[in-house]
Design a binder for these strands. Structure first.
Lengths: 226, 226
DNA sequence: CCACGATATAAGATGCATCAAATGCGCGTT
DNA sequence: AACGCGCATTTGATGCATCTTATATCGTGG
């Protein structure tokens, strides 16, 4: 990813950060889980320092919280917080889609189509992990096509916060996660900004309905913990 | 302030982070300046650890960059990057204004008016520091009124990136920085979401024109500025 | 039997020593 | 005199020891 470019040096801290981000997005942590620096250090085979660096960065991203000075946890997403994030995503991913529609090249479209195709396969195989990754890849492709690196950074922060929730709910979403991606691609092909923004809005609102349902029914997650 | 609540513990790292954020926003650092951990540690009277924590967090916010593994600098804002940030702010602060217009109480309006009044005084006194702080306070009051803490976090990240630029340009903006705040307050009084969003857009576009001018004219700032 | 408190343990904060690498300066050579 | 190579210094990375404090548990008293 040349867009991330200068941020990523190959030091341990950044590696650990990337690892924990992946773990978060893959749903390896459940909301409410407690994190212990020394424990993670042992698991990842490093000293506590890179872990501490990462924890601090993730806390800055609000992907984890310090419930008390010694109690580091994966936050539980509240309904109001999810709705706020959804409002923000509607604006931001809408902007990305609008801009992308204006500048998308043949190659960009093909990249999107490839992602969706692979996503279909992942769903057919009931591969939750690959499905969530490809869904995310699709959403991040738009600001990348739009050449908006700042936007990518902001969305990364939002997705980190939603990570545990999404990974936990994805399977229940079924095909609704991907059906709304096709109109997005179609709008981009036609270079129609308004349609692109609307299609993304549909995806966020309708495709994300399973997330909202889950939060509204506000229940205890089944222990599929991994 | 229950809105900031859980983030802020009174440990050294967070104090240093707050201090450096302030310094950034107050324009105490110039774009291109190099930061040295040990140097900052000596200036702030701490060990290197809390400084390192802070540097890492600020790098995560993209408020500072690692040009090379040992070369930590305040980034120079490019014209395209500023335009991207402006697009994002239009959407996000627009959203904040829309929402705030729907829920603003008498007390909220009064708080906004107080900020603007103080800002007038600061301008009259040619107090750049107080002026930039109050301008920022006004902009952050909207998402706070709207009760959107996630949005506050995102905007904080954006303002951190703009900090050195704004502080550097504020005086040239003159009254244009504040003139557009009055229509915002007016729209909030009338609980008119669309007008509020439009007023904020005017403020960002017109009030921020000085920033854009500066970037357009200074396409090639000699970094050996001495 | 319950409640309060003290103590022990655990876990993050802080400081610091060491390591590795990048940069800059100086010397030597052409 | 200019360019290039090498060494010294600077500086962030990493690991670790210690310190502080929060929490939990156990014991004692009411």
């Amino acid at each position: 990813m040349p867009t991330l470019g200068p941020v990523d040096y190959e030091n341990l801290s950044n590696t650990v950060y990337a690892t924990l981000c992946d773990a978060l997005i893959q749903g390896r942590f459940q909301p409410g889980d407690r994190l212990k620096i020394r424990e993670l250090a042992e698991q990842l085979g490093t000293s506590v320092t890179p872990i501490r660096d990462t924890i601090l960065r993730l806390a800055n991203d609000e992907a984890i919280i310090f419930r008390s000075p010694r109690d580091i946890r994966i936050p539980v997403m509240s309904l109001t917080r999810y709705r706020e994030i959804r409002s923000i995503r509607l604006k931001l991913e809408g902007l990305a889609a609008e801009t992308a529609a204006q500048v998308a090249t043949k190659a960009d479209i093909e990249a999107l189509e490839r992602i969706v195709r692979e996503n279909e396969e992942a769903i057919a195989d009931a591969n939750r992990l690959k499905g969530t990754e490809l869904n995310q890849a699709f959403h991040f492709m738009l600001p990348q096509i739009a050449q908006m690196p700042v936007l990518v950074g902001i969305l990364r922060k939002l997705w980190l916060q939603m990570g545990p929730l999404i990974a936990d709910t994805y399977l229940q979403g079924g095909r609704s996660m991907i059906d709304y991606h096709y109109p997005v691609i179609d709008a981009l092909k036609r270079h129609h900004s308004a349609d692109a923004a609307m299609a993304v809005a549909d995806d966020i609102l309708l495709g994300g309905k399973a997330l909202l349902d889950r939060l509204e029914n506000n229940s205890e997650p089944p222990e599929g913990a991994q």
